[in-house]
């Protein structure tokens, strides 16, 4: 099949970018979306044009490195990551608009590549349980009810891709942050730092320039791991509790 691609090109963070149009023929529907871009790049390289820069690593939907805004949807039309999107989700003759994640906290590095370091810094602010290597008690000393463990797991599947931020009209990273707060907050091991964790993470989130959450729900619809909005409620609950405890 044949597609028309409109792709954001921007040589580096400092330069201005613009949309460029490319025609691509011979696309097979078994290709993944990124393999389609590989083919485009191979052609651009052949013609002596700079290939389009985009991020990907595992290409199996787990590392969270990939992430494109495709026709106005984060990770495209399916509930999955960009790397797991296949061309059979498109039709012959389609026009496909491809943009980077847009958020001031995610500055564009080049073309479709953005810097998501802000998410690391939110984790640094408190997204962990403080336990030095070697100081852990025997694993069975603290049983965890199966349902709690399951709930923790379900939200621990966040891959840190940033699609929630990209899709959010407010540019908020609350879903990402809520997922971590819920993951650790569900477990007995996470209780001692529960108050400081939420306060510090939220402070860092706001400091990074993410917007505030108004519970619109675009994040969860874009999330390839289907992290539910519950986690934002949990985040708020924990935040209020922490404030009541004097934080």
């Amino acid at each position: 099949m044949k597609v028309t691609l409109k792709i954001w090109r921007q040589p580096d963070a400092a330069s201005k970018g613009a949309m460029h149009t490319y025609e691509l023929d011979g696309v097979s529907e078994d290709m993944s979306f990124l393999e389609m871009l590989d083919v485009l790049n191979e052609q651009l390289n052949g013609k002596g044009e700079d290939p389009v820069a985009f991020d990907s690593d595992c290409r199996e939907g787990i590392c969270g490195m990939c992430g494109l805004m495709i026709n106005g949807e984060a990770h495209g039309p399916e509930v999955t990551t960009t790397c797991q999107l296949h061309m059979r989700s498109f039709k012959d003759g389609d026009e496909i608009v491809i943009e980077p994640w847009r958020a001031d906290a995610f500055p564009v590095v080049k073309d479709l590549v953005v810097d998501r370091g802000a998410l690391d810094r939110i984790i640094q602010a408190g997204g962990y349980i403080s336990v030095n290597t070697g100081s852990a008690p025997e694993a069975h000393s603290v049983p965890v009810p199966r349902d709690d463990a399951l709930r923790a797991f379900n939200v621990a599947t966040c891959i840190g891709c940033g699609a929630c931020v990209a899709a959010c009209p407010n540019g908020s990273a609350s879903l990402f942050m809520g997922a971590k707060i819920t993951h650790l907050g569900e477990l007995p091991q996470g209780q001692p730092e529960r108050d400081t964790r939420v306060v510090d993470m939220v402070a860092q989130h706001d400091h990074e320039g993410f917007g505030g959450c108004t519970n619109i729900g675009e994040c969860t619809a874009a999330c390839p791991k289907e992290i539910p909005l519950d986690v934002i409620s949990r985040l708020n609950w924990d935040l209020h509790q922490a404030m009541r405890h004097g934080h």
């Binding site: 106005g72 847009r102 407010n170 540019g171 908020s172 320039g209 917007g211 729900g217 675009e218």
Partner: peptide, 23 residues
């Protein structure tokens, strides 16, 4: 904050989950 959080707008952006009220 929301305005500052995204100063460059998308060329194309779809609303998939938001209600008209929320927007």
């Amino acid at each position: 904050r929301a305005r500052r959080a995204r100063r460059t707008q998308y060329v194309m952006k779809k609303n998939n989950a938001s209600s008209l009220s929320s927007r």
